[in-house]
């Protein structure tokens, strides 16, 4: 890619991201649900279920911190899912077509949404982290550990975004919303949400064991506790999910192109 083509590519991606963020700013109804869900879960789990930490074998240092990691991954993934809603809405409204016509290299559109989602995520992180700290969460990890934890959140965000973008580009309708949201919700809640994996029993235990979100959660929790373990698996799973979902999203883009 020549330097002029590269400049045009990133200019297109930034334009898509700018509009996405502009819409969040002008339409709070689009932004708020992605924030309310994690905050609700944080209040419900860290507050209402705090005595779960008294269960024998629950050896994490702080129940609020334990729940914060779930909420962080959940908020990051949902922020990605809601981008899919925006993509579907744009195709319904005709803006998708405008972008397809105006961008020379159309992968810049997906990159633009990803950039917008990442910037949106920073705001979400600031709010849920602030609320968790106010709720008494203690942080044991170093600056590098915490950066690593947020990086896992970002990777979860990108994977969920590519997943929902793939659906949105295939259906190009907001009616596909449940198809974007439900699988992510289900996979999140089939991970060790309330207690460590070792305390899970019954059918959920083997499911959680193979659930990729478990690796992300365990990695994030270990980083917040300042005792990093299983990071190779966590990052490996995250990057693998992104690779698979990127292919899914790009094939969705091709399908949208073919459908016109």
């Amino acid at each position: 890619m020549s330097s002029a083509a590269r400049r045009a590519y990133f200019s297109s991606a930034w334009a898509v991201a700018w509009r996405y963020l502009h819409n969040l700013y002008t339409k709070p109804a689009v932004f708020v649900p992605g924030l309310i869900f994690p905050l609700f879960f944080l209040a419900a789990f860290a507050g209402g279920l705090s005595s779960v930490s008294d269960v024998p074998g629950f050896d994490y240092y702080d129940f609020t911190a334990f729940q914060f990691c779930f909420v962080l991954i959940q908020a990051s993934a949902l922020a990605g899912v809601f981008v899919g809603f925006s993509i579907a809405g744009d195709f319904e409204q005709g803006m998708g077509r405008r972008m397809m016509l105006a961008t020379s290299n159309r992968s810049a559109i997906v990159l633009g949404y990803a950039l917008g989602a990442a910037l949106r995520l920073i705001v979400v992180w600031v709010i849920i982290t602030g609320v968790s700290l106010l709720a008494g969460m203690t942080v044991r990890g170093s600056g590098l550990d915490i950066a690593g934890m947020y990086m896992l959140g970002l990777l979860a965000n990108v994977a969920a975004l590519f997943f929902s973008a793939g659906i949105a580009l295939r259906f190009r309708s907001l009616q596909a919303g449940p198809l974007m949201q439900m699988p992510v919700f289900i996979i999140l809640f089939l991970a060790p949400v309330y207690v460590p994996q070792e305390l899970l029993t019954g059918w959920i235990e083997p499911v959680a064991k193979v659930n990729p979100v478990t690796a992300l959660l365990d990695g994030a929790r270990s980083l917040l506790a300042g005792e990093p373990t299983g990071l190779l698996l966590a990052y490996g799973v995250a990057f693998s999910l992104i690779a698979v979902m990127a292919v899914w999203a790009m094939r969705g883009l091709r399908k949208a192109e073919v459908a016109g």
Binding site: S11, W18, R19, H22, N23, M99, A102, S104
Partner: peptide, 19 residues
């Protein structure tokens, strides 16, 4: 057109999309 954008903002969007 995006009903939430002004004409000037549309221009900003379109000129950026075209690089």
């Amino acid at each position: 057109l995006d009903p939430h954008l002004t004409a000037r903002e549309h221009m900003k969007l379109q000129t950026s999309l075209h690089g």
